[in-house]
Design a protein around this nucleic acid. Structure first.
Lengths: 339, 339
DNA sequence: CTGAAAGCGCTAACAA
DNA sequence: TTGTTAGCGCTTTCAG
């Protein structure tokens, strides 16, 4: 809210005929103001449409009640729904959410971190745990309260709320192998600067290495779009040893691949099995339903909010906060065949 | 960025041995400071890791370079992707995005408006054009710079960037009628406090009225979830005169209905035609593909950003800004049969 | 229970 | 070119 004609505490005080201190108290500690006065004040506030000035308050209490979140992109439903849950939780605590997006790019993320912080964010929600040294240093030097979601690590200077991407990648792969698949291919997001994609692949490799009869015939990286995933599928099908199953590091990728199989006249899962990762609505809606890994999107958002709120609470108990590890169940639908 | 030991202008000034004014100038108008002083100041700023205090600045210049957006929910991809585009456009202009969600509820929206404004938002992006009088008044009385997206109205005190929901509803209905359908049913979002849902229904009714042989056998309202839409479908199928086509006011609803038809063993579109509204990824991915209305999500986000940035620009030209009407093409896929 | 007043960090006139 | 100073709007002791 801007402008010149915007009412201030003084205006309210003048109308009610009390001091500005009383108005302030009435807003922040209503119980410290006598009932009748309080009522008159409330009425005046309402009639003027008074809203406290952010800068003034921030200056006085040295706190903005604002938390920033920087996510790769809201375009992917998995982040959008995590963010929604995060926002709701913050909102209950009267904290406002600042949003930035990194577009899966470390430099952009760094810029956004600085930007949100300079906008007064009291704390930050970040996705993933690997970032360049300068970003890391920046967070530490300024002792920025923050939590990392979509990942889990116990011994780290940052708190995390999420799951172990590597273990999850391994788990779904084992699951695929147990279905009799021996030749696997992978479609993954670009690993560069994306620890989630990277670790999921690592997990896939773990599972494969544990089983000498299984091999990965191709790993294709691409951006998170249907078309890119379709192109990745084409590249995979072009090689000699054709895989019987394709493990995708995200539902968007898996669905993109499925769409392409349809164009190609391939049947899933009869001709080719495909698995996803995330369990967004898309997974439930494609035909056949996508067998995938459920990522606890909302839970991460909510829990991250709780931790962050605690972190920035000026009179918080000194109880050590803990990173939280959540589970990622496999959701069985119809894209994974028994061989 | 917070903290008690955080350096202030004064600290920098003390180190360099100049006044705080010079530091401030050096930051905001470097050319107004002599070269050597400037260098010394910059060095001091760097070494201290000084970052201007947001509240102080906001108080002094009465501007935050922050814009708020309040959307019904990021859970629906249609808003998430509009918001993503909006955020990107703002970010290019070094403006930060504050996000609130209304959960399709006017009271919550009002709260969020106040909250974002009190957090210092210089302007606001809102969805839809109908809101309770008190919200309306509030916006006007405080002359909050704002634009309304997802709707269009030429003669209104607010600027809008979007499309005519009524006309769009009419258009898709005409399209359905042209396919030979005579008994239609509607599944729509809850009309209460949701002008988009409301107007789309109005448009549907317009099209039906224009054609005496056509009738609406049922209008079912429900929340935006697959299950609710499924239940709505059940209610529709329970009535005597069964419709041959169901027009849904959103893709989520349409897909929810399709999912239910599958459970019921009904074939779309042979047994029942279904149309959607939004054209989100889901629409492309279901089988058969959903015939729907494309809503220019990203374009609205981008254009709204441009207008809003102009609106809050302190030295903006007095050129009148115009509301923008975008088109909503019908995307033909496979859920609408010729009768 | 209420008021007076200091001061949070910054900017922008105005002076020098 | 630089410094002085008066606020911006709010909260919070400290008195009354």
């Amino acid at each position: 809210m801007r402008g010149t004609n915007r009412p201030s505490l003084k205006d309210v005080a003048a109308i009610v005929g009390v001091s500005t201190a009383s108005i302030s108290r009435c807003i922040n500690n209503p119980q410290k103001v006598a009932e009748p006065t309080r009522l008159r004040i409330k009425k005046a506030i309402e009639s003027l449409g008074y809203v406290p000035h952010f800068g003034g308050r921030a200056l006085a209490i040295n706190r903005t009640n604002t938390i920033g979140a920087i996510i790769p992109s809201m375009e992917n439903a998995v982040f959008a729904s995590g963010l929604q849950a995060f926002q709701e939780a913050l909102s209950h605590a009267k904290v406002t959410l600042l949003v930035g997006s990194s577009n899966y790019n470390a430099t952009q993320e760094y810029d956004q971190i600085r930007s949100l912080l300079s906008q007064g964010a009291d704390g930050l929600l970040l996705i993933g745990k690997d970032r360049p040294k300068n970003t890391q240093d920046f967070l530490e030097r300024n002792s920025v309260p923050h939590v990392l979601a979509w990942c889990f690590a116990e011994h780290m200077s940052s708190l995390t709320v999420g799951f172990d991407n590597r273990k999850s990648g391994q788990k779904i792969t084992k699951h695929v192998i147990e279905h009799g698949h021996r030749k696997l291919a992978v479609i993954a997001g670009l690993r560069e600067g994306n620890d989630r994609a990277h670790e999921r692949i690592l997990g896939i490799e773990d599972a494969v290495k544990a089983n000498p009869t299984v091999e990965i015939v191709a790993i294709e990286e691409c951006k998170y779009s249907f078309n890119e995933a379709g192109a990745a599928l084409d590249r995979i099908l072009a090689i000699e040893k054709s895989p019987t199953a394709i493990i995708c590091s995200s539902d968007v990728l898996a669905v993109g691949a499925m769409l392409r199989t349809k164009d190609l006249g391939l049947r899933v899962p009869d001709d080719l099995s495909i698995t996803g990762f995330d369990d967004i609505n898309l997974a439930r809606v494609v035909t056949p339903g996508l067998t995938t890994v459920r990522v606890p999107q909302q839970e991460m958002g909510r829990k991250a909010a709780v931790i962050l709120l605690d972190l920035i609470n000026p009179n918080r108990s000194n109880a050590e906060l803990q990173s939280i590890e959540l589970t990622t169940p496999i959701i069985t639908r119809g894209t994974l065949a028994y061989l």
